[in-house]
Amino acid sequence: MLKRLLSYLYPIKIYSQKSDLSKSVEVTWANGDLVIDSLNTNYSYGSLQRILKLGLKNIGFAKIKKMESVLVLGVAGGSVIKTLIDDIGFSGKITGVEIDSEIVEIANRYFKLDKIPQLEIVIDDAFEFVLKTKDKYDLIIIDIFQDTKMPNFLFETFFIDRICFLLKSKGSILFNTMILNEADNLRNQKLISTFRKGNFLIKSIPRVEKHNELIVIEKLL
């Protein structure tokens, strides 16, 4: 409790670990909340939770609450899962895919993800998972970073087509991206232009927390 109170004055690191995949990972009390940070960015809770919550609000809390299944690609500490359950009251099944088992261990230890009965965590590469799964989902959340970098496969046509195939009719995709330079900006513009040709509604929420751009996609049929 003392550390939590002092964190309103200055951040207090309570845990740090070197991860082969995520490099440096820290758990810190900041402004009264526990957050997970990588070397250069917030990984879970803190600003990231605010970013994804804004995207979910854009889709509509009431709409999400009625859904049956959610796929989260990139779990980290599970902040978006906590938002789904605590803020929205989502009671359906949540499947979380996370490649870094060490991050999941931290999330279980500090944020009790393993105590959420409707959550299934799969330790796997997101690309491999979407190739193998036979399930379809009402909402797919893509939040995959290695520090400030996003894997190239996230923007490849094959991956995007597969994600859309896994989406149920009237379902939604929430894609959290980071724009650090003009190349990243052009990358996002290209992605958005591909959806304008198909059976989708797409919109972007630019410059959330300075560098993040949220892309929201709705499948019409």
Rank of each mutant, 00 (worst) to 15 (best):
I106N: 06
N176Y: 01
K112W: 09
I106F: 03
K23F: 08
L221K: 14
G92A: 09
V70G: 07
E218V: 12
F165K: 15
I142Y: 04
S24D: 12
A62N: 12
F159D: 00
K66I: 03
R187S: 09
S193I: 02
D33H: 14
I99E: 10
A62R: 11
S169L: 05
D143H: 09
R162T: 14
L84W: 00
S172T: 13
L9Q: 06
F145E: 00
D33C: 07
I123H: 11
P151C: 02
G77M: 12
N212Y: 01
T41A: 12
V97P: 01
R162M: 05
V122C: 09
R109N: 12
F129T: 05
K65L: 08
Q118F: 08
K57I: 05
I179F: 04
T28C: 14
S172H: 15
I179H: 04
K219P: 04
S91C: 08
V80K: 07
L131M: 10
V75K: 02
R196Q: 14
L201S: 13
V216W: 08
D37W: 05
D20E: 13
E128H: 14
I121A: 10
G89C: 01
K82P: 01
L71K: 05
W29D: 01
I179P: 01
F200V: 07
D100P: 01
I64A: 02
S69A: 11
L54F: 07
V27D: 09
K219L: 09
K13I: 09
S79I: 03
E105I: 06
G74T: 04
L56D: 01
K93E: 12
D147N: 15
R207D: 06
A30H: 12
L84A: 01
T177H: 01
S101V: 07
I94V: 14
V122A: 05
S169N: 15
Y10M: 13
A107V: 03
G171Q: 08
S79E: 03
C164E: 10
G96F: 06
E98P: 02
N199W: 06
L139I: 09
N188V: 15
V72L: 12
V122T: 07
G78L: 02
N188Q: 15
K57S: 10
T95I: 15
V80Y: 06
Y15V: 10
S47Q: 15
